[in-house]
Simulated scan of single mutants.
Amino acid sequence: MAVLVTGGAGYIGSHAVAALLEKGEEVVIVDNLYQGHRDAVLGGKLYEGDLRDADFLGKVFQENDIDGVIHFAANSLVGESMKDPGKYYHNNVYGTLCLLEQMQKAGVSRIVFSSTAATYGEPERVPIDEYDRTLPTNTYGETKLAMEKMIRWFEVAHGIKFVSLRYFNAAGAHASGRIGEDHQPETHLVPLVLQVALGQREQISVFGDDYATEDGTCIRDYIHVSDLADAHILALERLRKGGESAIYNLGSGNGYSVKQVIEVSRKVTGHSISAKIEPRRAGDPAVLIASSQRARNELGWSPKREKLEDIVTSAWDWHRSHPNGYEK
């Protein structure tokens, strides 16, 4: 029996593939390589193609004895989603519909969905709980919420059980040093800061230093990418054991400010890392931290790499050895 990982050549997906392989699982990967990288796939059977191609996806299910699906494939840039919402609805929502329809035809009844804490929008309280209001403030979060709802209705109609995992910022790299974070364009804070240390950009922009936080900069929740991968596998194991469908937040439990990320990066890299204070960005909440207590209690998940210094160190090891990402 195989696990199908959609978007398995992407950043988080490739780490999930690596973790599955380490557990001796048979792995099938579907990725159109639009944002993914062939070199990020450490094993398994890779199919290059798009979820929206029914003939292609049907062939994947026909050729493999698939036991469950871990679904990462989605566009995920907030700014882009606001400029081109149609792209996000077509790829994220319609792509998920195509996947669910093929699962239904093939009789596959388990899916772990890599969602986002952007489904909550502006939080009513911190840390955010799974039962808090969902009111996305951008198209990306809205499409992810629509995907969650669609999956739930497929459970009602067709018995497809699911676990949806909501989280904020993935960071770090695999312990082997073979896979890491390589986005084009890059929008995540940790790799952007490390690009300054690598001499690839002059400075890092800090958008606002007058927030109601200890140092005036925004606080966010950072999770090591391998801890995220572990959570997806634990969720699949829950479904395999007959567990009910559920939604879980994932978080380290520790929020770090932008200035703290920069200071830790200076310590880890030994570089000064120039920073420039810029005006606030519209819609940036002061603090975003998710409570992961339910995931800890019901999935038995707990992050093994909670310290920011450990997360940044693993990211730095990757970027220093792969200054141009996966380019040869």
Rank of each mutant, 00 (worst) to 15 (best):
M1K: 09
V3N: 07
L4N: 07
T6V: 13
G13Q: 05
A16C: 08
L21S: 08
L21V: 13
E22C: 12
K23M: 12
E25D: 15
E25M: 06
V28R: 07
V30S: 09
K45L: 03
D50W: 15
L51I: 00
D53N: 04
E63T: 05
D65I: 14
D67S: 05
I70S: 13
H71S: 03
A74W: 08
S76F: 00
D84P: 03
Y88V: 11
N92A: 02
Y94T: 13
Y94N: 13
L99S: 05
Q102R: 01
G107D: 01
V108K: 09
F113C: 14
S115Q: 06
A118N: 11
P127E: 05
E130L: 12
D132R: 15
T134A: 07
L135N: 06
T139M: 11
T143H: 03
E148H: 01
K149W: 08
F154C: 09
V156K: 15
V156E: 04
G159T: 02
G159M: 03
N169D: 05
G172T: 11
G177H: 15
H188D: 05
V190P: 00
P191S: 05
L192S: 04
L192T: 11
Q203G: 15
S205Q: 03
D209G: 08
T217R: 03
T217I: 00
I219M: 04
R220S: 01
D221Q: 14
V225E: 10
D230I: 09
E237M: 11
R240W: 08
K241Y: 11
E244W: 09
Y248R: 00
G255V: 02
Y256D: 09
S257M: 05
V261W: 02
S265C: 06
K267Y: 09
T269C: 07
S274I: 09
P279R: 00
R280T: 00
R280Y: 01
R280L: 09
I289D: 01
A290T: 05
A290K: 00
S291Q: 09
R294Y: 06
A295M: 08
G300D: 06
P303D: 09
K307P: 06
I311H: 01
T313M: 08
A315F: 04
H322A: 10
G325P: 14
Y326A: 10
K328E: 14
